[in-house]
Design a protein around this nucleic acid. Sequence first.
DNA 1: GAGTGGTCTAGACCACGCA
DNA 2: GCGTGGTCTAGACCACTCT
Lengths: 239, 239
Amino acid sequence: MNDTPGFRPLYRQVYDILVRKIAEGAWKPGEMLPSEQMLAREMGVSHGTVRKVLDALTAENLLLRRQGKGTFVAEHDQDRALFRFFHIARPGGERLVPEAAKVRIKARPSRVVEREKLELRGRDAVFEITRLRLIDGEPAIRETIILPERLFPRLDRIGDLPNTLYSLYQSKFGITVAAAREELRAATATREDQSSLGLKPGHPILVIGRVALALTGQPVEWRESRVRSDRLVYAVTLQ
Amino acid sequence: MNDTPGFRPLYRQVYDILVRKIAEGAWKPGEMLPSEQMLAREMGVSHGTVRKVLDALTAENLLLRRQGKGTFVAEHDQDRALFRFFHIARPGGERLVPEAAKVRIKARPSRVVEREKLELRGRDAVFEITRLRLIDGEPAIRETIILPERLFPRLDRIGDLPNTLYSLYQSKFGITVAAAREELRAATATREDQSSLGLKPGHPILVIGRVALALTGQPVEWRESRVRSDRLVYAVTLQ
DNA sequence: GAGTGGTCTAGACCACGCA
DNA sequence: GCGTGGTCTAGACCACTCT
């Protein structure tokens, strides 16, 4: 049936179309997609082919299906979605999402390392968010977050930044964080770490660097989290 | 069709049967399974149901399918399989598998923390493997690996332990590591770290604790890796 | 050519949520 | 009772591998 080298199976084409439409916001997070039958009719493929694609997108946490109700675009607000990207836990395993404090934001020119991480050209401006994060009311993490100004227009005019920024990216800027690359290393607390986190000189801290990627694969956020390692660990399950 | 609460879909039952058979070694790693058609006939289900299961097991890296050839039990020797559990990289992303040196093994009674991690009862004995791992010929990681003696009989009689232990577990003991839980934290180099890795006092190191799980979900290995953090990072992709 | 997996279709029936 | 997703089937045809 096919001897062209650029062949893509039908389900792959349907997959690409749906991802593109979701990325473009054809359906907003939380909204319902047309039913399997409708999608199949519209795209001129069978029930089973559409189903294969919807199942795959559900496995990737991009869609959410509920029997009897419908298929919905996943929201970053939901607990399970949050835990995909937040891996800080107490020793032993209990995961948690720390609350944010002392949040500051400013716009400034990008630096070389930021342009590399975020694949920016020229001297594009960025927003820099700094914040402390608290566990049980005690400072536990220092975070610096870098965002391209072009993707987050007037971000600094928003009054209160929420604790879970990815919901904000999604709801206010139409950017869904779909994947992330993280690099972890150990370091010694700097003076700023010591004063912000209440550590003694020489204390080791866990440094987590993260590049977050949008649905399109484009890097949209670079973040560095400096974690006090006596109370917290980074927990991950590999399967 | 069904109103019993203990209902499991057909494909789930087929899945469980196949996982159990693979775990029991009905087909050894690298061996071919019966064809889809054969499996469907034997189990009295349709082609499509078998296919759904085989696709799932392939996605979980438990099977490997090759068009025109057949379906095979995955081996831990293969590059891709290795990289599922080895996340050490150079800063920037290039992954690597360090070579092992100064490998020592001894049998001894288990300790409390080891019995917890490995879900051992009583005073079951364990093997303790210690080794250095080298990057570019330089010591970079100190590792301690704890294994239940019961699961790895006469492990200490094996002459040379290979660099990639998981292949050994699979080929010599019939244990396939299918998943792992890891916890990362920062620490300060101990005296032993300093002398083994050539670090100065106070140097920060990255400590990775890992419990490896067999196909059955049973914990089979506990390992702690102490990584010098100036040359190496822990890299992970979340999606 | 025979045997394997890969793609795609058409349709049946069930379980769930809601009006 | 209707519309939704969830399960399962039967069968067609294609692409790949080996002999």
